[in-house]
Amino acid sequence: MIKDLRHDFSLSAATAGVIALLATYTGSVLVVVEAANAGQLPQGLLSTWIFAVSFGGGVSGLWLSLRYKVPVIGAWSTPSVVLLIFALTQYSFSEAVACYLLLSILVTLLAYTGWLAKLITILPQSLLSAMIAGVLLSFCTKIFQSLQIIPHIILPVVIGYVIFRRFVPRYAVALALLTGLAFAFPELSVNEQSVGFDLVSPEMTTPIFSSAALVGLGVPLFLLALTQHATGLHILRNEGFDVSTKQVVGVCGLVSVPLSLFGSPGANPAAIIGAICAGSECHKDPSKRYISGVVCGIGYIIIGLFGASIITLFAQLPGQLITALAGLALFGTLISSLTSSLEEPNTREAAMITFVVTASGMSFFNLGSALWGLLFGIGFSIAMSRREALIPKNQNQ
């Protein structure tokens, strides 16, 4: 295994893994902090929570990347944590943990019995591509929002990326990252006092089962989990990787069950961040892209062991810099997703509805635009299929 890692290692793949890592901890992890503040959770429980989500994503991604040599970026469901920002004002953290525990057990059972794969296949692939494209569009446009905020850092990154893309396309993102760090370095203020490195002492939360929480929080969590797994797998398959639902989701589920008692909403293959490592920008040779998953997985585990104290380190980096770099790395995936979503003429209109609703960022009942985009697209497809089925009958009369 060590010999394979040395042979397959590349700077571009390792950089993709680092960007995916930084993108997570300068964005998604802050959602955990916000949810913890909403629930007025103590610092020790927040540190445990970050340990749980990080360790779950790291172990699952690292194992799957090494075992199958596929760039699986383990992650946690950010929308599931977002739900808690509102839910923790109605339910206790113990009730949320009970929902997480049952969800992890259910997803694991569905994965290994094959039912999850059947549920996922019901979702039209063109609509999934459109949903991904909708999320990616809003993500990629943030490059220019970041340019407006810190032009002295982002403009050199964008110009550098264009130049590097022209002459050394394989290392364009890596060199753009170094360019950004070079221009951002004078503004960084990292020191021993600003960053603490204390190992986490995980605190287990005893789950409390209540019918109100299981319905009001558990059902939306299940729908989100189904969508998260479907999109994560679709990203990998769309890039040509033959991954099994049972293998990937089953491993994520097994890892998530014990960690749910520490606050993990469940590990899953990352979608948007995972696209950074699954695409050609990571490495031209698909068989060597798994290195990015290994690098990111190891980073997740290390950060998880240090819990909340590590957040201050990532807080020193400009969030706009990471956002811009991730957006640049996702352009190729945005193009392929849009192309894939419009290939089938019969589902083209439904795909565009999915794309537009997802890109709008709308939110109802604490459910994000990605899920609503998929639901709107499926609803439109069903309505049109019934209309087409009725037309011949009316004509015959």
Rank of each mutant, 00 (worst) to 15 (best):
V173F: 05
A52N: 08
H152E: 08
E239Y: 04
S201E: 12
L22H: 09
L109R: 02
A16T: 06
M384W: 05
A324V: 05
F222G: 13
Q395F: 12
L224N: 09
W76Q: 03
N268H: 10
L127V: 07
G218Y: 13
I353S: 07
G377T: 02
R237V: 14
L88M: 08
A383Q: 09
N394H: 15
K142A: 11
C140P: 06
I378V: 11
L84A: 15
P220S: 03
V219A: 08
R289D: 05
G240M: 01
L22W: 01
S10T: 02
S80H: 15
F376Y: 13
A16S: 09
T108W: 03
A270K: 12
I291C: 09
S260L: 02
G263Y: 00
M384A: 09
L390Q: 13
Y91E: 05
S280A: 05
G134A: 01
A315C: 08
V356G: 08
C252G: 06
L45H: 04
C252F: 06
F55Q: 05
L317F: 12
L236Q: 01
E192T: 14
A267T: 13
V31F: 08
T26G: 08
R237K: 08
F365N: 14
T205I: 07
T205R: 03
T179W: 00
N394T: 10
K142Y: 15
I73V: 04
G361N: 05
S77K: 04
L178M: 11
A23G: 09
E281M: 05
A270R: 01
S146W: 03
C282V: 15
L21K: 00
A275F: 06
E187V: 15
S94H: 14
D242Y: 11
T89D: 14
S280K: 09
L175F: 06
Q193V: 10
M1I: 15
K284M: 14
T108M: 14
P202K: 02
